[in-house]
Simulated assay, not measured.
Amino acid sequence: MLAAERRDFLMARLQADGKLVAKEIAAELGLAEDNIRRDLRELAAAGLCQRVYGGALPVSPAVADYATRASVAVSSKERVARVAASLIRPGGTILLDGGTTALAVAAALPHDLVATIVTHSPTVAAALVSHPSVDVYVLGGRLFKHSAVTCGAAAAEAARQVSADLFLLGVTGVHHEAGLTTGDADEAAMKRTLAGRAAETYVLASREKIGAASPFTVLPAAATSGIVTDAPADHPVLHSLSTSGIPILPA
């Protein structure tokens, strides 16, 4: 089998199975495992898969730039946002992450909601201007333009002064083995800091993020209070997470 044929085979298998295990594929094709690992490195370099220990997972479409993500899975994000908004209790203090799903949460909030929302997203903060009874606090720091959020030392220090009832966490990948992932190390660290300041953390996961992975781990799924998603209930990743005791909130 030629190298190009192997790569086509690997991509077809990844699409069908949702993951690739290098050792198993090598045995199936009668090839050295190093050959398969080299193919996976080349596919990952081309942005076609996400390398993980022992193999590869589908790459998340949510790692595209902010403007592109705004047009990806819009109705899916709106469904997730409506359920996530229902978790916010009047009078509570909420940490709301950045990203396009968090922006949809802001749009889904009742106009008469009385709450305090803390965010590191200027776009989310601006979307809350029209909510007269929501106090909005913006965490300052270096602007990470890819996701339109602040991160870095200043933003993390500001976050450590907050104690919240709830954190609505956005990620680019949700997987029972790879955990909750995103595409930037500093952004992942900021998300971990925010999660550590809230009594409960729920993950905002539109269906395209389930079963996908990005390079940097935010948290293990078990470290959260649950996952809000509109992915089918019989999705193998959701089944595995649910079997592990992680609540899945259908949207």
Rank of each mutant, 00 (worst) to 15 (best):
A159N: 08
M190T: 07
K23H: 15
A67D: 14
I227C: 12
P232A: 11
A70R: 10
L143G: 07
A73C: 10
A154E: 11
S86Y: 10
E187I: 00
A67E: 15
A148S: 13
S240K: 13
A56D: 01
A115M: 02
M190Q: 06
Y202P: 01
G141M: 01
L238N: 02
G140I: 01
D184A: 08
L238E: 02
G92I: 11
G99T: 03
A107F: 07
A115S: 06
V114A: 11
V105L: 12
L31A: 04
M11R: 14
L194E: 00
L113V: 05
G141N: 04
L57S: 01
L168H: 08
V162W: 10
E78I: 14
P58Q: 04
K191G: 07
T229S: 09
D186C: 07
D8R: 13
A85P: 04
V118H: 01
M11K: 05
L168Q: 09
L249R: 09
R69Q: 08
G173C: 06
V134L: 09
A46R: 13
E208S: 08
A188C: 03
P250A: 12
L10R: 05
D112L: 07
V149A: 04
D97C: 10
E177K: 12
L204C: 01
A212R: 04
D97L: 05
A12M: 07
L14E: 00
Q161H: 13
L48R: 15
F216P: 12
A126N: 05
